[in-house]
Nucleic acid binder design. Structure first.
Length: 671
DNA sequence: AGGCGCACTTTTTTT
DNA sequence: AAGTGCGCCT
């Protein structure tokens, strides 16, 4: 097959974009306008023009979209696409550092995830009371935000947490300590990876040239979600490579990570030798779905200058279902799914979009109760689960005997060793850079059980795959872990270990294995799921960009949740939340089902809590009114959606009917 | 003093 | 599901 066929499938404006040759380009593409298709066609086109695949670098946000793009180019071009690379910014930068370690001044480093960062910050923050001082997690976020936006702590505090501004000095010293600690242990956090490459290529022209001349083209997906740090990474390379960026400002929902509109809005200003192209025809959804989405954007104070037009024509009007509480809502979604299944549609054509993993709990419970198979993308990550981290902690030590965080986790697992004793042992261990010395230290009397040393001793002797080491580690630690988790689903947790072993089979180096999954985590429910299996998808909206389904449920579009209570005081936050809802609505191809509950007691309580001195009541209260007034679906014209209000009686009647029907068809007990 | 177990709260979004 | 606080035990 050839690129020609791919190009023929494009509409004229997509084709202009895909075959653009002159200079840098920014493609502004609305939701469902064929953004991914255009990137794929462009990669194929460039290859067909004689560009070697390994001189094209595609940058995406997640591993999933990265591999999807490469797979689809491969389908069309076969072997001639061999060498085409698509990765996240983080994986890309890691490989650059790995290939020129001397230039960057880091021969070895351990990539740490957010949880590890938190451990360090927690340690340094100490036991200060929360309330008038940010939590470790908040300090961690402030630190990351400042780095991603390239702003000072001062500016970050003013923007993100003005209430902590008076604590600037102690916060600054904690961050300073964190950096020292990080450096002395050769830890790289997520931001370090980008920061080091960005600084390197901005400060040293020969390094910039070395990186830049490895590529002819860089294609960037989801440009609206890139932040100033990422722009610092791209900008100096434009001397050597052609940038082709695709994005949609109306879908910018990563402001909390420092995503910057300017990367889209100021593109041409920053790169005068560039072209802006637009894709405005939507091929995903029917017009009614786009009408309500367009209306949502138009109700904003920001002018997005965007009106999606469906190329598919008209279909079904979006539905809004209102319930008395979130459990009813979840149950109804499950029942509606079953109804659709009974009438012949597949589970996999359905997607439930949720704002947070927490708000998915009621939906998950309902689907579990009705035995509807599903995958939850955006839930807990497999390698983040406590019991998996426990086992992996000992692997970290085998890879790097200076890994303080790994030691802390491993040592405190054992009975008789707490934080204090572990701290003393670690101090001792870090004095020598030698695993055998570390083992001798552990064998010193008074340091708890002898197993503590023997486990490591046995593991370092194992040759072969990482999988073997994990298997042995699990075996050696089983009794201890079984005891730790005896009242917390130990049986269920145990099953995760064999999956982790399977994951590790491909890897021969412990550190490489850990790094891969820190940079590209896999979700817990992704385990033992086969591609294209017929299952329902539950997904957080932030993970849902680029995905689509025939039928989409957008859950909990209730007062106090859209926008959420925590956002109502900041206009920028409110607008970002509006875009979050916009992203959710535009995922649907044929049917859009919005569900919500009448009263959001939780949000109301929250507002009340943050204003303890004010007398609030539901009828007229300052901030609760603000919640209700700011609600995004206020003033929705009647013709854009039909609404059903469900009372408990109607709902139970309905479910009785569905149960009966399914018992006949499938023989499953749904009670 | 340090560790441990129990009861209690608390959930934004992600590389 | 995991973090925090508190009192009890070694």
């Amino acid at each position: 097959m050839s690129a020609d066929k791919l190009l023929l499938e494009l509409n004229p404006s997509q084709r202009v974009a895909a075959t653009h040759l002159k200079n840098h380009a920014l493609v502004l593409a609305g939701a469902g306008c064929g953004k991914t298709k255009t990137i794929i066609a462009r990669a194929a086109f460039l290859i067909s023009q004689g560009v070697s695949p390994d001189r094209i670098q595609i940058l995406t946000f997640t591993r999933r979209s990265a591999s999807e793009i490469v797979e689809r180019v491969k389908t069309h071009l076969g072997d001639s696409s061999q060498g085409l690379r698509s990765s996240t910014f983080h994986t890309w930068c890691t490989s650059i550092i790995r290939r020129a370690p001397t230039a960057f001044g880091f021969k070895k480093f351990t990539v740490i995830d957010r949880d590890d960062q938190l451990q360090l910050f927690k340690l340094l923050r100490g036991k200060r009371a929360s309330g008038n001082f940010p939590t470790a997690a908040q300090i961690c976020d402030l630190y990351s935000f400042a780095r991603n936006t390239r702003t000072s702590l001062d500016a970050t505090l003013k923007k993100q947490s003005p209430n902590y501004y008076n604590q600037k000095e102690p916060i600054a010293s904690i961050m300073k300590e964190y950096e020292l600690r990080k450096r002395s242990r050769n830890y790289f956090d997520y931001d370090d990876i980008l920061d080091i490459v960005a600084k390197g290529i901005n400060q040293h022209e020969e390094l910039c040239k070395w990186v830049g001349t490895q590529f002819d083209h860089i294609l960037v997906d989801e440009m609206q979600d890139t932040n100033p740090l990422q722009w610092e990474l791209l900008e100096p390379l434009t001397k050597y490579v052609k940038l082709f960026c695709v994005g949609d400002d109306a879908q910018s929902i990563y402001g909390f990570r420092g995503a910057d509109f300017k990367n889209v809005h100021s593109f041409q200003e920053r790169l005068p030798d560039s072209t802006i192209l637009r894709l405005e025809d939507n091929y995903r959804s029917t017009q009614e779905i786009l009408d309500i989405s367009n209306w949502l954007l138009k109700s904003s104070t920001i002018n997005y200058d965007k009106k999606l037009k469906s190329m598919r024509g008209f279909g079904l009007i979006p539905k809004i279902h209102t319930f008395s509480n979130e459990w009813e809502e979840g149950r109804w979604i499950a029942e509606d799914l079953i109804k659709r299944r009974v009438s012949g549609s597949l589970w996999k054509n359905h997607m439930i979009l949720v704002r947070s993993s927490f708000s998915a709990r009621t939906v998950e419970a309902a689907l579990l109760a009705k035995e509807i198979p599903y995958i939850f993308i955006g839930g807990t990550k497999l390698l983040d689960a406590a019991h998996v981290k426990d086992v992996l902690s000992v692997l970290r030590l085998i890879g790097n005997n200076q890994d303080e965080i790994g030691w802390m986790r491993y040592l405190t697992l054992w009975s008789g060793v707490g934080e204090v004793k572990a701290g003393k042992i670690i101090n001792e261990i870090l004095n020598h850079d030698n695993t055998n010395d570390a083992i001798s230290t552990l064998e010193t009397e008074g340091y708890g059980s002898s197993e503590l040393a023997s486990v490591i001793k046995e593991l370092i002797q194992i040759e072969g795959s990482v999988s073997k080491i994990i298997s042995k580690a699990v075996k050696l630690m089983t009794d201890m872990l079984a005891n730790k988790y005896k009242n917390q689903d130990w049986e269920k947790r145990q099953r995760d270990f064999s999956f982790v072993e399977k994951l590790a089979e491909k890897h021969s180096s412990v550190l490489e294995f850990l790094e891969e999954y820190i940079l590209d985590p896999i979700f817990n429910s992704e385990r033992d799921r086969i591609e294209n299996e017929d299952i329902v998808t539950i997904i957080t909206i932030h993970s849902a960009k680029g995905t689509e389904r025939e039928v989409c449920y957008v859950q909990n579009v209730s007062t106090g949740s859209y926008p959420p209570a925590f956002a109502i005081n900041d206009l920028d936050d409110v607008e970002e939340e509006r875009r979050v809802l916009y992203v959710a609505l535009t995922r649907a191809k044929n049917e859009l089902i919005i569900t919500r509950k009448m009263h959001n007691t939780w949000s109301y309580e929250n507002v009340k809590k943050s204003n303890p001195n004010e007398e609030l009541n539901v009828e007229d209260s300052g901030d609760n009114n603000k919640l209700i007034e700011s609600y995004f679906l206020n003033g929705l014209p009647e013709q854009l959606a039909s609404e059903d209000v469900h009372t408990n009686n109607v709902n139970s009647l309905r479910s009785a009917n569905i149960n009966q029907k399914l018992n006949i068809e499938f023989g499953i007990d749904l009670s």
